[in-house]
Write a protein that binds this DNA or RNA. Structure first.
Length: 828
RNA sequence: GCGCUGGUGCUGGAAUUGGCAGACAGGCAUGGUUGAGGGCCAUGUGCCGCAAGGCGUGUGGGUUCAACUCCCACCCAGCGCACCA
């Protein structure tokens, strides 16, 4: 009856049974508490899954299976992020339509996920490039549009020449696009934006309410980049107002110059005739520098005096106006007051051009000395807070007080106003590409920009044989007259469709809602189902989406909450990032590098359960690790050993005789450890706990101890404990033991704390901090007896020779520590 | 430069959160089984030492009866931020 362990026979058999019996179907009913466990839905690449993906999908599968056995109603779905540039690029490279490649790739992904035993509810599979899905992406676009959160604007955009499309500022960082192409430039193209900046504060505040890695929260906070301060209106001599933004109005009396970004419109007007040639040359040079070069040059500051002056509204001083590219045109007002004594950048600039440095804030313990040192050399900018000096009526105030009083003063005299600045920009959603969700807008000659009415959705993405971008900066859809030409939904007159599509991040901003009712056709989701499952209880994926997807989806959720569609504002209650699994060469796996290890080859050689066990065991969940095939054999050996425990030798003929107290204790200890450690995402130690237990069982069996009731009990429980991590072998053993039903429908075992308790304790005896002896005692033995036994121990006596015990510290059940001193030789 | 996170045998890692460092694996070594290979089984495996014993968790200090764990300084690695006024 018990053959050799053959995972390649067992695994597909059970996978089929599970699918046929609908074991993983999630139904929103019953008294069980719900648990929505979500993986970042993948882009179904042509490379297929590699073992690195399993590092994400295996742990969430363990959690899902465990939670089901723990009595939760679990939703564990999977779908495809199949719209967007990667899919289109792949199709182009293969000379095939992306619909075809997407369908092939998703079929392959699904096959591989089943192969490794993932318990997804495939009846809820979604595909973001299907009309049933993108219809509702368009619906959300219209919702944003109607709420004034989607707008069309012609502006300088980030442009990736490789992708042939505009990018959001979030996607173009450091001269590279998010797909890793270099050479990102600026191009003036009209495009659609989402007004994410309107949600800066709610998005910031929401972070305090969610259980996410602090690292990710910090990245989002940095990205939003909120700073509080005020605008101060400087004036040109011609009387023109030039506001500057500052977070340090307390340093305004220290302004000794004024700087405009080269792009600032005032440069033209403020520049004097004798300086004009120099200024224009500087601006031209700055324009030649790409934004990237400008930002990477974080050391040397350059600039030119314009010959013009502005007046500081607080002290009436006339300060020189410079142009310098360290001032960014897009942040604040594109102009700053130069306070070299209290700002490092201004200090560097003043140093380079010999501008005066005037201290107006005294640090702790400085006081009068600062006033005396006023014109002497200052070594560095003092950027801390302190007490104001040489600041007119505000002298003597602390920085904190001064900031308030100066802001009050500015507002009372209309010289400025309190202001909050954000670094985050609006989200550019337009892509001049074919493979994406068409933007549901038409342009009517009479009515202008008109949203497509909801009942006309979806605006179908038309079939197109030649969908390659042509370098015109317009979407390939613009070449398709039958798509472009339409009628105005308002007046019925001739109109043209918007030909841009939405970037893929639109799809991923709401897909998690669709899983709650993937076939619903009256709206993006069925409200009852949404209320039942949402928010997502556990969301697991790589840390690379820290700001893009994870910020956008929060934004959409906040908007939907404001629109009354959702009863919560944060979509993902808890987020975890798994560690990366790198190739054996330490690099990321990719087909182009030729270092991909597929689950297919590993399953063929070792079985899916061994692959799962190994991936869980190789390193802590959140730690990066390089793949090595050396250890996977250990996982397989472990499963062989498990299998061997059930082999006919004694289990069949065994008559049950007696108890095995140690074994029973080990069983309960193992139940406790496995339960607590799965809950804590410490899967590597879940596996080691199971290994220890199996080793003990194997030892018992070998030494003839396999016929006790305790051993029987252990064999009955082991498949249940293995079910989350090694679901196939667990199911097979469960059935071979003759139990009815699936092991995955069993209730997770409880541990008996009393049974798990040791009754012989190992006490370590220390003499002057060093362990000198270890002995076992009954758990009910008291301190005095432990001491007595310790003092009688030869090793302890040896180290106590010639010394006297000054102090004895007893930590119950653990340690007895003697502190000694040298016995004084008896003086004559 | 600033901010996280980490640094433990040959390797991956463990340590009930201040209480026997190296669990559990991989690798290696020796022996057994086998026609051979693989596989499997047994034993050993932190360093020095014949031993008694000593040393040992990136480095240096500190707190404590007791430190991988807490505190201070520093070194290294990875990630994030980096002219945001």
């Amino acid at each position: 009856m018990f053959r050799n362990y053959n995972p390649n026979e067992i695994e597909p058999r059970w996978q089929q049974v599970w699918e046929e019996t609908g074991l993983h179907r999630a139904v929103e009913s019953g008294e069980k508490p719900k648990f929505y466990c979500l993986d970042f839905f993948p882009y179904p690449s042509g490379d297929g899954l590699h073992v690195g993906h399993c590092r994400n999908y295996v742990p969430t599968d363990v959690i899902s299976r465990f939670k089901r056995m723990r009595g939760f109603n679990v939703l564990h779905p999977m779908g495809w992020d199949s719209f967007g540039e990667p899919a289109e690029q792949f199709a182009i490279a293969n000379g095939v339509h992306p619909r075809l490649t997407t369908d092939q790739n998703t079929a392959n992904f699904r096959r591989q996920m089943i192969l490794i035993g993932c318990s997804y509810d495939w009846s809820r599979e979604i595909d973001s490039s299907s009309p049933e899905f993108y219809r509702w992406t368009q619906w959300f676009f219209l919702m944003l549009y109607k709420r004034g959160l989607a707008y069309h604007d012609a502006n300088w955009q980030w442009w990736c020449p490789t992708c042939q499309t505009t990018l959001s500022s979030h996607e173009a960082v450091g001269g590279e696009c998010w797909r890793g192409h270099t050479g990102v430039t600026r191009r003036e193209i009209p495009a659609w934006y989402f007004r994410i900046t309107a949600y800066a504060d709610p998005l910031l505040d929401g972070l305090d309410q969610i259980d996410w890695p602090e690292r990710i929260k910090t990245m989002q906070r940095n990205w939003i980049g909120r700073s509080e301060g005020c605008e101060i209106d400087f004036r040109t001599e011609a009387g023109e107002v030039v506001p500057v933004f500052t977070t340090r109005p307390d340093t305004v009396y220290g302004a000794t110059f004024f700087v405009l970004a080269p792009e600032h419109p005032l440069v033209e007007r403020v520049t004097s005739e004798d300086q004009r040639a120099q200024v224009e040359a500087y601006i031209a040079a700055a324009a030649r520098l790409s934004e990237i070069d400008r930002l990477s040059e974080s050391h040397e500051k350059t600039g030119v005096f314009t010959g013009g002056f502005v007046v500081n509204p607080l002290n009436g001083e006339r300060v020189p106006v410079w142009v310098a590219d360290y001032v960014l045109p897009a942040y604040g007002t594109g102009a700053v007051m130069g306070v070299p004594a209290h700002d490092e950048r201004d200090f560097g600039f003043a140093r380079a051009y010999g501008l005066p440095v005037r201290r107006v804030v005294a640090g702790p313990g400085e006081g009068q000395q600062v006033e005396r040192d006023q014109e002497s050399a200052v070594e560095a900018a003092y950027t801390g807070e302190g007490v104001l000096v040489s600041s007119g009526p505000f002298s003597g105030l602390s920085s904190i007080e001064a900031i308030e009083r100066i802001c009050d003063h500015l507002e009372e005299h209309s010289l400025g106003r309190r202001k909050v600045q954000y670094r985050m920009r609006d989200w550019l959603i337009s892509r001049q590409r074919y493979w994406g969700t068409p933007i549901p807008i038409v342009y009517c000659e009479k009515c202008g920009e008109v949203p497509v009415p909801e009942e006309q959705l979806p605006v179908l993405l038309p079939e197109m044989a030649d969908f390659q971008p042509d370098g015109s900066g317009r979407s390939p859809l613009a070449r398709l007259a039958e798509f472009v030409n339409t009628t105005c939904p308002d007046c019925g007159g001739p109109a043209r469709r918007e030909t841009d599509t939405m970037g893929g991040f639109a799809c991923s901003s709401w897909y998690f809602l669709r899983f709650t009712s993937p076939h619903y056709d009256q709206g993006p989701f069925e409200p009852q189902a949404m209320r039942y499952w949402m928010p997502v209880d556990l969301y697991v994926g790589g840390a690379e989406h820290a700001v893009l997807h994870l910020l956008y989806s929060r934004f959409w959720t906040h908007v939907m909450a404001d629109a009354g569609l959702l009863p919560f504002r944060e979509p993902f209650t808890r987020l975890l990032n798994q560690g990366q699994l790198l190739a054996p060469d330490g690099l990321r796996m990719s087909k182009s590098r030729g270092n991909v290890i597929t689950p297919d080859s590993m399953v063929a050689a070792y079985g899916a359960d061994a692959l799962r066990v190994y991936e869980l065991f190789m390193a802590p969940f959140d730690q990066d690790v390089s793949w090595s095939e050396e250890g996977i054999n250990g996982a397989r050996r472990f499963l062989n050993r498990v299998w061997g425990l059930y082999s006919a030798a004694d289990s069949e003929k065994a008559t049950v005789v007696g108890e095995d107290r140690d074994l029973a204790r080990a069983l309960h200890k193992t139940i406790r450890r496995v339960s607590e450690r799965i809950e804590a995402f410490r899967f590597n130690t879940v596996i080691s706990a199971l290994m220890e237990f199996v080793n003990l069982l194997a030892e018992r069996k070998r030494s003839g101890g396999g016929r006790t009731a305790s051993f029987k009990q252990a064999l009955d429980t082991l498949p249940v404990l293995l079910a989350p991590v090694a679901p196939h072998i667990a199911e097979e053993l469960w059935h071979q033991l003759g139990h009815p039903g699936s092991v995955h429908l069993q209730t997770w075992p409880a541990w008996d704390a009393a049974l798990a308790q040791e009754d012989i304790l190992q006490i370590a005896v220390q003499v002057d901090g060093k362990v000198r002896a270890v002995f076992g005692i009954d758990s009910d033995v008291g301190e005095e007896q432990v001491k007595e036994q310790a003092l009688a121990h030869p090793k302890v006596q040896q180290h106590l020779a010639g010394r006297e015990v000054v102090q004895a510290i007893y930590v119950p059940r653990k340690v007895l520590s003697f502190v000694t001193r040298q016995v004084e030789p008896i003086a004559e």
